[in-house]
Simulated assay, not measured.
Amino acid sequence: MATVGATESSAVQSDSNRTGRVLRVGPLKPSLMDTLAGDYDALVLPDVAERDEFLARHGESITAAVTSGRTGVDATLIEQLPNLGAIVHFGVGYDTTDVDAASARGVVVSNTPDVLTDCVADLAVGLVIDALRQVSFNDRYVRAGRWVAEGNSPLTSQVTGKRVGIIGLGRIGSAIADRLTGFRCSIGYHNRNEIADSPYTYSPTAAGLAGSVDILIVAASGGSGTKHLVDSDVLDALGPQGYLVNVARGSVVDQDALVERLADGRLAGAGLDVFADEPDVPEKLLGLDNAVLLPHVGSGTVETRAAMEALTLQNLDQFLADGTLTTPVTR
């Protein structure tokens, strides 16, 4: 796999480039924003109405941009920063950044892999348990006084022994699989390519995987290559006894098709940490008791966010020092 932009040996930018300004693009963790402002004298990209004037004034001085997967740096902004050398992401996702445009310009791109793997995998398993055992629904059931008024809530489905399919058996997908083997679940997966020596069963298509499992977990990266990978055909293959869990990106799932099938019983349930147009969630989805909805908190622990912040700054410091990155994005 080739590194986006230049390789470590050829990515070194000129000293004049590396001593340029840092630009913050979009909101970040408050302590990270404070550090960028205080220690790096970082500029902040303004709203669209003020952007042209700002870029005309500062664009040539900027050599590094710090952003997140929720904001990113698009091709237009890359073009407006003629001396940009690096795009540093806080977070593992980078699908909102135009990496092709970055590569064409020799701009290196980083993210923060590994440090959030455990927390996202933990949450995925939590969503599996919640969706099948209806934990959130039963909490609401008790709080609303329904236990007293209506008696016991409906029976749910056990997790142990279920057939689980994982779309995207990378770092996070593998960590999810490792956890669910402790529940005596059988594991299958779908990737673009089969993984040599994997202990899990490979399916060459997402629909084929969905048709063979009880629970389908989405852990694939976002971007144009995986947009609506989980489409109506995949959801229909999963079927009315099946559950979908998504801890990847909302774009990977056809959200309209998902909502329709949850509403009319063509899917048993879902656990969702991500959505197509965050923070907006379809009104119809909000009223469904068979859907567990979380506000994109897969990496949202004190420990993980601190590690992500440290790795973001490590990437920035390394680029400013020698033009390379600690954790470059590869393709």
Results as ranks from 00 to 15, higher is better:
Thr160His: 14
Pro279Trp: 13
Phe137Met: 14
Val25Ala: 08
Val142Glu: 01
Leu258Trp: 03
Asp254Cys: 02
Val213Trp: 08
Leu127Tyr: 04
Glu303Thr: 05
Ser232Ile: 10
Gly225Asp: 13
Gly211Asn: 07
Gly38Asp: 14
Ala307Val: 03
Phe319Glu: 00
Glu8Ser: 15
Ile78Leu: 15
Ser198Pro: 14
Asn193Trp: 07
Ile187Trp: 12
Pro279Tyr: 13
Val329Cys: 07
Asp277Leu: 08
Tyr243Asn: 05
Thr35Gln: 14
Asp317His: 13
Gln241Val: 00
Val125Asp: 07
Arg51Phe: 00
His89Trp: 12
Leu45Met: 12
Tyr202Lys: 08
Val218Trp: 10
His58Tyr: 14
Val135Ser: 05
Gly298Ile: 11
Tyr40Glu: 01
Asn152Leu: 15
Val252Lys: 01
Pro82Lys: 14
Ile215Asp: 06
Phe90Ile: 00
Val259Glu: 01
Gly85Arg: 15
Pro279Gln: 14
Ser299Ala: 11
Asn191Cys: 09
Arg179Gly: 00
Gly211Asp: 03
Glu303Phe: 00
Glu260Ile: 04
Ala42Arg: 08
Thr181Pro: 05
Val125Ser: 07
Leu123Gln: 09
Ala257Leu: 03
Leu325Tyr: 09
Val252Pro: 02
Glu303Ile: 02
Val115Gln: 04
Leu313Met: 03
Thr156Leu: 08
Val108Phe: 09
Gly239Ala: 12
Glu60Met: 01
Leu316Glu: 01
Thr71Phe: 11
Val164Phe: 13
Arg184Asp: 15
Leu288Phe: 13
Asp280Met: 07
Glu283Pro: 11
Leu32Pro: 03
Asn315Ser: 01
Glu303Val: 04
Leu293Val: 15
Glu60His: 09
Met308Asn: 00
Ser31Gly: 02
Phe90Ser: 02
Arg70Asn: 08
Gly250Gln: 10
Tyr141Lys: 12
Ser157Met: 09
Asp178Phe: 09
Phe319Met: 05
Pro27His: 13
Ala49Lys: 02
Gly151Cys: 06
Thr330Val: 13
Pro27Ile: 07
Phe90His: 12
Pro82Phe: 13
His190Ile: 01
Phe319Asp: 01
Ile166Ser: 02
Gly298Val: 11
Gly250Pro: 11
Val329Ala: 07
Ser16Glu: 15
Leu294Met: 14
Ser186Gln: 11
Thr96Glu: 15
Leu23Asp: 07
Val44Trp: 05
Tyr94Pro: 00
Ala2Arg: 06
Gly265Ala: 11
Val135Leu: 13
Val115Gly: 02
Arg133Asp: 00
Ala2Thr: 06
Ser14Arg: 06
Gln158Ala: 11
Ala11Met: 12
Leu127Cys: 04
Arg305Trp: 00
Ala56Gly: 15
Gly323Tyr: 09
Leu238Phe: 08
Pro295Cys: 08
Asp254Lys: 01
Thr112Ala: 00
Arg171Asn: 15
His58Ile: 02
Thr226Pro: 03
Ala177Trp: 14
